[in-house]
Design a protein around this nucleic acid. Structure first.
Lengths: 117, 117
DNA sequence: CCAAGTCACTTACTTTTTGGAAGTCACTTG
DNA sequence: CAAGTGACTTCCAAAAAGTAAGTGACTTGG
């Protein structure tokens, strides 16, 4: 191999977190400011409440987001990034830059076939 | 909401790509140089060949990695990043930095450390 | 007061993805 | 020519995500 690569448990864990469906989207939205549960579902659009709830719990468990209950009377729950979560802005930002530069949003042309006959 | 946020289809697609299990790990390895199928399975450790094969096809379809067959005789297949794939180094790098700074690899015990310089 | 609605979730059930192991195909080596 | 090796596939069970309907606290309208 060209370069040996030491396995990095921290990176593996980080990658496991970001490598879950919807996490990247949730983070981008929360980087713009706190959001309530319903706002998140609306802004993400196609996520199911079941999964959003799950993802939010995972992120909270990881210390990336915090949950704030405003006992109203109209009870409202807001989610916002912790310091650890805010620190992810660079990752999100670089991914956004990459996306701007490299992602074509139109239906991708078909992948080349492997040599088969 | 604090800041409105325009939905970005490109980011959504990028996030869908990175937001798949194993993709972050595969990318980090490939950023260190080309790898053969077996090397990837070994270096990742716990991925199944079925899923690695699937992920590689997806990444190839997205134009992030390219597949090179060296018709040997000992036939070998190498995967390497395309220019588009290489461009992801910043994302991987920022994620790695974040992980170094914020991810605790040990099982979380009673007290959690705050930012220790 | 009672019915209907909102918000933040849960629960139950279906579909899709992933994991694990074994099999395939084209060679290579003993 | 029986046993590998490398790169995948196939099959099947387990886990995660999608869908829809339900829950509980509280509000508004008639």
């Amino acid at each position: 191999m060209e370069h040996p690569l030491t396995r990095c448990a921290r990176y593996e864990k980080a990658s496991e977190l970001m490598g879950k469906r919807w996490t990247g989207l949730i983070l981008r939205i929360l980087l713009a400011g706190p959001r309530r549960f319903g706002e998140l579902t609306d802004e993400i659009g196609s996520i199911s409440e079941r999964v959003l709830s799950e993802r939010l719990k995972e992120l909270e468990a990881e210390g990336v987001v915090s949950r704030h209950v405003d006992a109203g009377p109209p009870i409202r729950v807001a989610y916002q990034l912790t310091e650890k979560g805010q620190a992810l802005w660079k990752v999100v930002d670089e991914l956004a830059r990459w996306a701007e530069r490299w992602v074509d949003v139109k239906p991708a042309s078909a992948a080349r076939k492997r040599k088969s006959a």
